[in-house]
């Protein structure tokens, strides 16, 4: 078990070292990075938006229920939705979902290229495939996913507003007062740190799984699944570590 972990960790580091080299041609990498930004960013807008609305709505509704008949002011609902969204729910839930959508896509894309000998063809041309196939994806994700997470936070707070104000749980004045109370800009910083780290994890782990695929379609499916599972586990683990470090 430990040896297996060390084997994969070592191979992952070697792959990363190969990926982090000077590009053969900057313009080709730039073009590929832009394409990935479009695929990851624009391609994930709907799912991220949809999830964010419900995160906010559910958080607001449940806290409203818990605060019933208590001495805690109603406007706290807006405050709680805002902070829980910014600190934890927007980056973590968004990235867990993106690990499923983007991560599995990356593993399947690179794994399919491995199986169809596209990677061998590029290697023989003289292309550093680790770099060309992985680096643009990682960079694109580290730029675009924080933007998605930021958008998810806004949508989630709006979702909380819609769910609590529209259903008469609290007034809009109370919700907005809550959202504007006790604001700590440092929490936004935490959100972006998490988003960047999670983006790196979900792309690099998925790329690693795809790059080393052997066998046929069953192995490709397994690699895709492993990409999601390992990304999710590492995202949750790093979430905890970041929480410890940034709140010390």
């Amino acid at each position: 078990m430990n040896l297996n972990f060390l084997y994969h960790f070592g191979r992952y580091l070697i792959l990363l070292r190969s990926a982090l080299t000077r590009p053969e041609k900057f313009s080709m990498y730039w073009k590929e990075t832009m394409r990935q930004m479009n695929d990851i960013g624009i391609g994930s807008l709907v799912i991220v938006g949809l999830i964010a609305v419900f995160i906010g709505a559910v958080t607001a509704t449940q806290f409203a229920y818990q605060l019933q008949d208590s001495f805690v002011p109603a406007y706290y609902i807006g405050y709680i939705v805002r902070d829980s969204t910014i600190i934890e729910l927007a980056p973590t839930i968004t990235c867990l979902v993106l690990a499923g959508k983007v991560g599995s896509n990356i593993a399947a894309e690179i794994g399919g290229m491995r199986q169809k000998e596209h990677i061998d063809a590029m290697e023989i041309m003289g292309v550093n495939t680790a770099s060309y196939l992985i680096l643009p994806k990682v960079i694109a994700a580290m730029v675009v996913i924080p933007m998605l997470v930021c958008l998810a936070a806004f949508i989630s707070i709006w979702g909380g507003y819609t769910a609590s104000v529209a259903t008469g749980l609290i007034t809009d004045v109370e919700y907005i007062q809550g959202v504007r109370s006790f604001f700590e800009p440092y929490y936004v910083f935490m959100m972006f740190v998490k988003a960047v780290v999670f983006a790196y994890i979900l792309t690099s782990v998925s790329a690693y799984q795809g790059y080393h695929v052997k066998g046929g379609s069953i192995e490709l499916g397994q690699a895709s699944t492993q990409a999601v599972v390992y990304s999710d586990i590492l995202i949750l683990l790093s979430d905890y570590i970041i929480a410890i470090i940034l709140t010390m």
């Binding site: 169809k116 000998e117 596209h118 061998d120 063809a121 290697e123 023989i124 041309m125 003289g126």
Partner: peptide, 13 residues
């Protein structure tokens, strides 16, 4: 050296 190599794959790739 690889940049001086061309290769045709069995499945064309």
């Amino acid at each position: 050296i690889r940049m001086e190599i061309g290769m045709l794959f069995q499945g064309s790739a």
